[in-house]
Design a protein around this nucleic acid. Structure first.
Lengths: 236, 236
DNA sequence: ATTTAGTTTCGAACACTGTTCACAAATCAT
DNA sequence: ATGATTTGTGAACAGTGTTCGAAACTAAAT
């Protein structure tokens, strides 16, 4: 009796057809313009039929977001590929994150900045795909710390979050077109990345104690008041 | 003949009533749940009447965004107030930007991350309020550079954009609830700010030439491969 | 082969959305 | 008071997510 199996196959086939239709609309018309009726028309079903495969429109978006995290992970994995240097790996990974935001703006917005899909900001921590990616990169950051390329005060988890936040900001400014004419979003992304990496590379209080370098601030006037290294993204 | 004047007064009064109604809905129910019919009900007019005061719903949102930039400017101006230290001013201003994102999430999203209001990403550069704020802070950054608190390679305009992008990312991650349970968004914002400021404070290639400090990377292995200072946000 | 049980699908409807348009009401200028 | 102009309205259009009862189809049992 392969009947149950065939039924199950047909179910997932229709589920996939719904997701495919949604994905096409999603990418071509923007995820705000995806409607249940348009999906239904594309798969030649009535709108109501979709509700026996997905409980709500949100659930479709959640599934697409999961897809997006898979796409992002694949891209990042492919680009860092066989890069041996941990610093180069981190830089390439973060830059690929930014490239992803330009190549797949709809996925990107849904995955990282959307506030209108409740399931995404409620169950974000369950998207293990993304957290595995972060954890992998944290390993490279740790190596950078061990090699002395990053300050010893840099906590890999926190540093990863800081890099993520920085590039997310640059990507958002780009996607939302919040730059003046003549300002280059790619250059901004580059500057954010380099500034943060640079910030990880030293703890001023320590390195500037000697006060011998050309760029050292006047004595008694520390360059930054706090430690300047990420330590507290995760609460203890 | 004060008739024209009275008519004009009445027009702006109704315009203001529309904006007030929109603002209340906007803040209490979220800007995605503001509808022309709800606004109309609040001001006791028919929905169609609004269209003789605003050409479209977008125009109402654009006006509210302008308001938002006024609110942000006021907040930042008030907090940096009489702080004498330029570095403290910059830090306080950027932090206030983050606080604003928490206090007025709807304004914040509309102003900085929204992509659905066409007028906002088309005419963003015309919102002079915001650019004046950026320019003012660039003055403080320039002072930091002149005092040697920031690396001499730091270009104030670019640095301001990097700080803005970084905090925008932290704020977005917070508002979109993209952190795992136990991770502290405020700590992330703090870390981003300090990491970027730290990155501005030194050019590793220069300061680490001596190779005398404890945290200096092994010779022949520069901590970062590029200069690590923002120079190219604005195209030449 | 026919009946029963269980799904699956559909059409219609509900309560919304932004926007337009002909028409009515109010106001203004003469 | 009359004609001209502005201003407001109700109804409609085309769209949205979602629900629900009835119909259609499938699989197993008689």
């Amino acid at each position: 009796m392969g009947i149950k199996e065939r039924q199950e196959r047909e179910r997932v086939a229709i589920r996939q057809a719904i997701l495919s239709a949604a994905r096409e609309l999603f990418i071509s018309e923007g995820y705000r313009n995806v409607s249940m009726r348009k999906i239904a028309e594309r798969i030649e079903y009535s709108p109501a039929a979709i509700y026996s495969y997905f409980a709500s429109k949100d659930d479709i978006f959640f599934a697409l977001a999961e897809e997006g995290f898979g796409l992002l992970t694949d891209r990042v994995t492919a680009t860092i590929g066989d890069l041996p240097e941990p610093m180069a790996r981190v830089r390439a990974a973060i830059w690929e994150f930014y490239e992803f935001s330009k190549a797949q703006p709809e996925y990107f917005e849904l995955m990282f900045t959307d506030r209108s899909v409740p399931s995404l900001n409620q169950d974000f921590h369950r998207l293990t795909f993304f957290h595995e990616l972060l954890t992998r990169l944290e390993g490279d950051i740790l190596t950078c710390v061990e090699r002395g390329q990053f300050s010893s005060g840099v906590e890999p988890g926190a540093a990863m979050h800081v890099l993520w936040a920085g590039m997310l900001g640059a990507a958002s400014i780009n996607l939302a077109r919040r730059l003046a004419p003549g300002e280059d979003p790619d250059a901004l992304a580059h500057d954010v990345l380099e500034a943060v990496l640079s910030g990880f590379s030293t703890t001023l209080h320590t390195t500037f104690v000697a006060g011998e370098c050309a760029l050292v601030p006047a004595p008694g006037e520390p360059a930054v008041e706090s430690v300047g290294v990420p330590v507290k993204v995760s609460a203890p």
